[in-house]
């Protein structure tokens, strides 16, 4: 049969023939195998994932002059305004307070955006999911990655503020690296968890939004935990506190107590287990829900 010139014949290059079998999942072993297949397919498409993340960022700031550096600029303005006001309110010196506030706000900004965007991770990708077979963890990677990129832009503000106020954390700062790894795992877990719940229950985004707002005020983000020393013990039940501290403290040249690390790991483990259990259970239903 002569091939018409209207369509290019890419098939002339040898390509392996992918195979897939879809069948109901009746036991955990099958679920696990399918979830691992999803993970492997996602990793194989890493170039698509990174391109999606960058394209999202570029799309968000298309036609603007500063581009992604708008995030940097708005963070800088917010920190300058809040810093001067709250240093006065809490009666603290600007030199002491501003580096703390900068780091806190940048970290919180990442955390709250990942959590918010996690809710629409799958429901927002409805057309892609229903158009062709797409591994779900790829969509998770896209959300996490694009927020890491935004965080990268915000780190500039931290660097500038630290330089201005002469904060040199030295080698202690390296202790934030395990904290960053923990955050990365948690970001993936929270995106899987909330993305799945958000696909099934449309009430999740507003609930998460209001909970985050409460969490912002009751967690030591803009205020230092030292302000209420007698409450330090029960404040540790707030997972955000420990998780913020494993990155924030080393960068401010403070040692992180083992109990804080322990709690951060426990909270993360619970989150990851919950996310994994949910994903195993409902991965095959996600396409029906979005």
């Amino acid at each position: 049969m002569p091939t018409m010139s209207a369509a290019p014949t890419l098939a002339t290059e040898p390509l392996d023939e992918p195979v897939f079998v879809t069948a109901p999942e009746r036991d955990t072993a099958t679920r696990l195998r399918h979830a691992i297949a999803d993970l492997r397919a996602s990793l194989a498409l890493w170039r698509l994932g990174t391109t999606l993340a960058w394209t999202d960022i570029k799309g968000r700031y298309r036609g603007s002059i500063l581009g992604p550096f708008w995030v940097t600029a708005s963070t800088a303005v917010m920190i300058a305004a809040l810093g001067i006001l709250y240093a006065a309110l809490f009666g603290q010196s600007l030199t002491d307070y501003l580096p703390f506030l900068t780091l806190s706000l940048v970290l919180w900004g990442y955390l709250s955006t990942v959590t918010t965007e996690a809710c629409s991770c799958f429901s927002g990708a409805e057309s892609a999911i229903r158009a062709r077979r797409t591994p779900f963890l790829l969509l998770v990677g896209r959300i996490v990655l694009r927020n890491v990129i935004v965080l990268g832009h915000n780190v500039l503000v931290v660097v500038v503020v630290f330089a201005l106020f002469g904060v040199h954390p030295g080698l202690t700062a390296l202790w934030c690296l395990p904290g960053l790894v923990l955050w990365l795992l948690d970001s993936i877990a929270i995106t899987v968890l909330l993305g799945t719940l958000g696909a099934r229950f449309r009430d999740i985004p507003p609930i998460v939004g209001s909970l985050l707002q409460i969490a912002f005020f009751i967690s030591p983000v803009i205020w230092k935990p030292e302000l209420i020393p007698h409450a330090k013990t029960w404040m540790r039940f707030n997972p955000f506190y420990s998780l913020l501290d494993v990155i924030r403290e080393p960068l401010l040249d403070h040692a992180v107590p083992p109990v804080v690390w322990g709690l951060a790991c426990v909270y993360s483990a619970l989150l990851c287990l919950g996310a994994a259990a949910l994903f195993l259970r409902v991965r095959c239903r996600l396409a029906y829900w979005v």
Binding site: L15, E17, P18, V19, F20, V21, T22, A23, P24, E25, T55, G59, S127, A128, I129, R130, A131, R132, R133, C284, R285, A287, Y288
Partner: peptide, 27 residues
């Protein structure tokens, strides 16, 4: 392979593409 079966199996071998809706997944 978008909807996974409630019962029975679907087995597909080969590079597959589906033209299912006008936007076909474009953003």
């Amino acid at each position: 392979g978008i909807y996974e079966p409630v019962d029975g199996t679907v087995h597909v071998r080969g590079r597959l593409d589906a033209l299912l809706d006008a936007n076909s997944g474009m953003s």
